[in-house]
Write a protein that binds this DNA or RNA. Structure first.
Lengths: 214, 214
DNA sequence: GTCTATACCGGGATAGAC
DNA sequence: GTCTATCCCGGTATAGAC
């Protein structure tokens, strides 16, 4: 068939991205060499530059694929609602923490974003898109419960994302300090706490949960 | 005085560590050059190698100074108890998120720790020491309130640390999504939620806070 | 598009004078 | 201990054959 050549090219392209993921994660962006990436992908240096104009572009392409996957996964979890999503998120979190590459690539992406304004804007936009999905999920759950929370849906979404990210990083360094279900238990307690304390000004409730601010 | 020479040496030493902090944060470990560090410190390349045997050792020395500072700060906060400590932690978090260097160095340290087993053990040990302090603070506050929490003190400490770390990173990328007091409000709601739901088996409470696990 | 060979440069580390 | 000058390796990127 006439698609055979194009298919081979596409395969090389994917192989290169996979190899880039491995090598960038293991060595870090700076210490990763194009030669090692080519070797890992089972091809040559010249081939890398036929597919990507520079090492930097290869890295960005990898990050974009990563974002697309993450977004798709987040969307897939939304359809089943909050209660199904939390265990799913928890599973993802464990997978990332225990993977040899995912968490490292996340950190590399974050650092690169701080140093390259253009990429930083892209990554921030990606975060916003994922955050929207999570916020929707929180709103949906709040409505289902028929309660009010003393924090905006968006803020709950931010907290959940930040907590997940932080736990992944702690677990990667000291696995024993982050039990499998810590994320889920924390989220559940947090929602309970947000329901308990009233959102509106009139301080009718007990003095419990002393107001803590900066 | 006879200490004048030694003082000059010590000053160079500190200048080098300060310069290293700046350059490693701005460029990343791999892309940082010893020449730029020397120039930033107002000295020469040769001088760097007179003080540190290699670029790697310089990096590790910087990280150790960082850990020492962090630990001292954490200890200083303990003495005033939990209620004073939370705003203090919040302030530190804001400082780190808004600093040009601190958050980046944290990420560099984490990545380096994953790649160098020896340093990884050191960083994990540092985390444990800080974690102990936080755990003590939680225990102290729990006792003061005279309640029980449906999570161990250590777990609460882990969650607080992870949340802080995650929020710092989110705020660095999109400052508008992390309000100044989000950390404090979250912690307060979390504690309220942990008090509300019983720790012991007998499920006497309402079905609220549906049990969420992995 | 894929390969091998190579131009080219930047940076880690050292030598040796002061 | 601090400097300048230098060695030398490794790595990005390109040239040119197939």
């Amino acid at each position: 068939m006439s698609g055979s050549r194009a298919a081979a090219k596409a395969r090389t392209h994917e192989n290169l991205l996979d190899a880039a993921a491995t090598v960038f994660a293991e060595r870090g962006y700076g210490a990763a060499s194009v030669e090692e990436i080519a070797r890992t992908a089972g091809t040559s240096v010249g081939s890398v530059y036929a597919h990507f104009t520079s090492k930097e572009k290869l890295f960005v392409a990898l990050m974009e694929r990563r974002s697309a996957h993450e977004f798709a996964a987040a969307q897939a979890e939304l359809v089943d609602g909050f209660e199904a999503a939390v265990p799913a998120l928890n599973r993802q979190l464990l997978a990332e923490a225990d993977s040899d590459h995912l968490a490292e690539l996340g950190a590399e992406a974050w650092l690169y974003a701080l140093r390259s304004p253009a990429f930083g804007a892209e990554l921030a936009a990606h975060h916003r898109r994922v955050h929207e999905i999570i916020t929707d999920m929180v709103a949906q759950e709040r409505t289902r419960r028929g309660t009010t929370l003393s924090m905006s849906d968006a803020e709950v979404g931010t907290v959940a994302s930040a907590l997940a990210r932080g736990l992944v990083q702690y677990r990667r360094l000291s696995p024993e300090s982050v039990p499998d279900d810590l994320f889920g238990r924390t989220l559940s307690a947090l929602l309970a706490g947000l329901e308990a304390s009233p959102a509106s000004p009139p301080a009718s409730g007990p003095d419990a949960a002393a107001s803590v601010d900066a």
